[in-house]
């Protein structure tokens, strides 16, 4: 049965996260997710919350280079880890090729799922498993887009994938 009287709150634990290249030393209670920490604790709201349950991909970030749902990750479990959010993708004002391609192909409408889509796409490209449009569609299926920009998202990713494979 759910308990109804409150339990004492555990003490905050000091951790250090390297976010987009800068080191953040903070104190968090165990119950804070990476997403809570990013958005609420240190006000980096570029990572979005769309469901908070790992069902939409809006909160996708790169954790040590791998795409994950930040809503289903406790911050205390990632002491010392390297986190890249959409805010850390561009090289100063020079957009990442995927950011450019998303603009060119209008792969966004309301833009709310976009940070997660682009982080996810960066993960997809670096994983190297996608060889075709069909693969891109399947491997981008962890990112919902309610505006329905899917075909443009695939166009954008395909273009970047092709240009990267032709230059390497």
């Amino acid at each position: 049965m759910p308990e109804t009287s409150g339990s004492p709150l555990p003490e905050p634990i000091p951790i250090t996260l390297k976010i987009n290249g800068s080191s953040h030393s903070i104190e968090v209670r165990p119950w804070s997710t990476l997403l809570d920490v990013l958005r609420d604790h240190i006000h980096l709201t570029d990572t979005k919350i769309g469901c908070d349950h790992g069902q939409c991909g809006a909160c996708t970030i790169l954790l040590n280079g791998q795409r994950i749902n930040s809503c289903l990750s406790l911050a205390v479990m990632h002491n010392g880890d390297e986190i890249t959010t959409i805010g850390g993708i561009a090289d100063c004002e020079n957009l990442h090729p995927l950011q450019q391609a998303f603009i060119k192909h209008d792969a966004l409408q309301c833009g709310y799922c976009t940070p997660g889509q682009i982080c996810s796409a960066i993960g997809l490209v670096s994983e190297g498993h996608a060889k075709s449009r069909e693969d891109i569609r399947e491997l981008m299926s962890g990112n919902l887009c309610r505006c329905g920009a899917y075909t443009n998202i695939v166009d954008a990713i395909e273009e970047v994938m092709r240009s990267e494979s032709s230059t390497t």
Binding site: D46, Q99, I103
Partner: peptide
């Protein structure tokens, strides 16, 4: 889209 840059940058 004129707000696309802001959106892709978060």
């Amino acid at each position: 889209r004129s707000d696309a840059r802001d959106k892709v940058l978060g």
